[in-house]
Design a protein around this nucleic acid. Structure first.
Length: 587
RNA sequence: CGCGGGGUAGAGCAGUGGCAGCUCGUCAGGCUCAUAACCUGAAGGUCGUUGGUUCGAAUCCAACCCCCGCAACCA
């Protein structure tokens, strides 16, 4: 029986479809909070883990975005170099990923030699194909520092309300938008010295030249989330225009002007670097190449075809899923596709942008400066990885902004994770443990009930479909329905009563329940890998769940009659005391 | 008229022309294997407002009211 086609959408993935899971690159300035996790890390991980269980070749890549003003601002603040910021925070992100059990094929960073080279190559290709132009624009320039300053390094007096510490683009006090050049007495935020406008020449990506091709690109994307499609079409409708891709900075990737045609050469290019969004999206490609290189043997060969990055990028059967927060939409549905089309028409374009809205904290926007922040490490340490992953998967902001509410967090843990699923597993295993005479091998070997089998098969099919459409919250709900079904099955069959008159009937009921549990173990693995590994041990499997390419483990399997379960059984999850938690989190 | 999203049961959401649904909570009953967990049943909604189209509107159209996001560090 094949469940691979999904007739309702254009998402038809086969058993060997190569899947690229591209996760947005976080700025490496040290403040990854639960919003980031709900935004893209967790959904990407669940999606990737599912596809690996399906036996598909999966390449999940991301890395630390080391360039851009957020990094230089952090460096100024801590009075160190940008490189030191990177060296300090990149390992922290690696650590966090490990803590959260987010499993990448490769999590790298944008300061690698490989990334520099691929970014420069792609830029040169765009230039040779006629998509790069140069243009003179006025920018803030500090005579004293002898350099151009990005907008966010400039402040001055608001022309509307006279507020003296206004930002250069919008006044903090009266919220008026300040047009370029209207700010009174502009000065450097760092040194306080006056700045003025000075002409500077920059490279631009001519997005307008991609208008038609991008319109064609979104034409048949009816399976995208409705609001993602609407927003993308909104950009296209308003018309695209050139966007600058270089800055007057000394931190970032240098411009390879020596490789450009003469008419594109530019004075002072050695003082310019690529604008961060330009190089960051290229990371998906460069990380893929880096990962592939890591698997080469001494002769430079790859042992398996799916270890080759080209298996994902130059394969029209491959599917590219991108995971990010909504502020990244434009760069992934417009700029990046344009850059791919403009540099090399044979590369795969994004197939599905899984763009999440924002997670707020008890109704407030995450804001480090206002103290509205919650760190995943804290939640893991105090409440455990499974409760965190379960709750975030449940409230994932797929269609609108959502909230982290402590009261709901406790309720989801206690009433769903513990009471429904955890309790089902524990009541079955402990009952079985207390009655060794129910060992299935001691009775006629029974098959799994048709209704049970049917229910499990349907769950695999429906959950798989939902995950492929990136409807993860709904997928989780569907899995919990199977757990409820298990509880009901146990109740209806009353093994604790039946055992007094018929050991065989009780044994058969337990055998069916073990089958349900064993399949839930696979179904929940993408969402709760840690708990499912624990369950795997309790069920006395010799190996943890390890996905293998070309082997489909995402399917119904009856319980093995011979299999014994572990001596020591304990509940998978802990209940929380609502009062205590609310007190502790002061709400 | 900057762009976009939303207003459906106490809470969170699904439902895009055909008998108002799901999860949680609440109440009542059952069960006692299980972490006071599980099972059954019930209560609870004039679907933001007003008008229109239609045999029929939560759903389509028009106007209006109210929330929120992006354009500012931030997924």
């Amino acid at each position: 029986m094949s469940y691979d086609n999904n007739p309702e959408t254009q998402i038809n993935l086969s058993d060997n479809t190569p899947i690229l899971v591209a996760v947005a690159w976080p700025y490496v300035n040290g403040d990854i909070h639960v919003g980031h996790i709900a935004g893209c890390f967790l959904s990407a991980d669940i999606f990737a883990r599912y596809n690996r269980l399906k036996g598909r070749p999966v390449l999940m890549v991301s890395g630390s975005d080391c360039h851009g003003t957020p990094i230089t601002v952090a460096a100024d603040k801590e009075k160190v170099t940008p490189q030191e910021i990177v060296d300090k925070y990149h390992p922290k992100v690696l650590n966090l990923i490990k803590t959260l059990e987010i499993e990448y094929e490769l999590y790298t960073k944008t300061t690698t030699e490989n990334h520099y080279k691929i970014t420069q190559d792609l830029f040169v290709a765009l230039a040779k194909n006629g998509y790069i132009s140069k243009k003179v624009t006025p920018q803030y320039y500090s005579e004293k520092d002898n350099k151009f300053l990005p907008d966010r390094y400039v402040e001055g007096t608001c022309p509307f309300c006279g507020f003296e510490d206004s930002r250069s683009d919008q006044c903090d006090k009266c919220s008026s938008v300040i047009e370029e050049g209207k700010l009174i007495k502009p000065r450097s935020k760092n040194t306080g010295s006056p700045v003025e406008f000075k002409d500077t020449e920059h490279y631009f990506l001519d997005l307008d030249k991609f208008q038609l091709e991008l319109e064609n690109f979104v034409e048949n994307k009816s399976y995208w989330r409705e609001w993602v499609l609407a927003e993308t079409k909104g950009w296209l409708k308003r018309g695209l225009y050139e966007r600058s891709i270089t800055r007057d900075l000394d931190w970032g990737i240098p411009i390879p002007t020596d490789r450009l045609p003469d008419e594109l050469k530019l004075d002072g290019a050695e003082n310019k670097r690529f604008y961060v969004w330009f190089d960051a999206v290229i990371g998906y490609l460069s990380a893929s190449v880096e990962w592939s290189d890591m698997h080469k043997d001494n002769d430079g060969n790859l042992p398996k075809p799916w270890l080759d990055w080209k298996h994902y990028w130059y394969n029209e059967d491959a599917r590219h899923y991108y995971f990010m927060g909504k502020d990244n939409l434009f760069f992934h549905t417009i700029s990046w596709p344009a850059m791919l089309i403009g540099s090399d028409k044979n590369k795969q374009l994004p197939f599905y942008p899984a763009i999440n809205n924002f997670l707020n904290l008890e109704g407030d926007k995450f804001s480090k400066s206002r103290g509205v922040v919650l760190y995943p490490e804290y939640v893991v340490e105090n409440y455990g990885i499974d409760s965190l992953r379960y709750y975030l998967a449940k409230v994932m902001p797929e269609n609108q902004d959502a909230d982290w509410i402590w009261k709901d967090f406790v309720a989801a843990n206690n009433n769903e994770l513990v009471a429904n699923f955890g309790n089902f597993v524990f009541r079955v295993l402990s009952f079985y443990k207390a009655h060794p005479e129910l060992d299935p091998t001691k009775h006629i070997l029974f098959a799994v009930d048709n209704t049970v089998q049917q229910e499990i098969k349907e769950t695999f099919y429906e959950v798989g479909r939902l995950i492929e459409e990136c409807k993860l919250a709904e997928a989780l709900q569907r899995i919990m329905k199977l757990s409820s079904f298990g509880n009901k099955y146990f109740n209806d069959n009353e093994p604790w009563k039946v055992i007094k008159t018929s050991e065989m009937a009780a044994s058969e009921a337990i055998y069916n329940c073990l089958t349900i549990i064993d399949n839930l173990r696979i179904l929940l693995h993408p969402i709760l890998p840690s708990a499912m590994n624990k369950l795997t041990r309790m069920l006395d499997y010799t190996d943890l769940i390890v996905p293998e390419v070309e082997i489909n483990k995402w399917e119904y399997k009856p319980w093995n009659h011979e299999q014994k379960i572990e001596e020591f059984i304990e509940p998978l999850f802990k209940k929380f005391d609502e009062k205590e938690v609310l007190e502790k989190e002061k709400k």
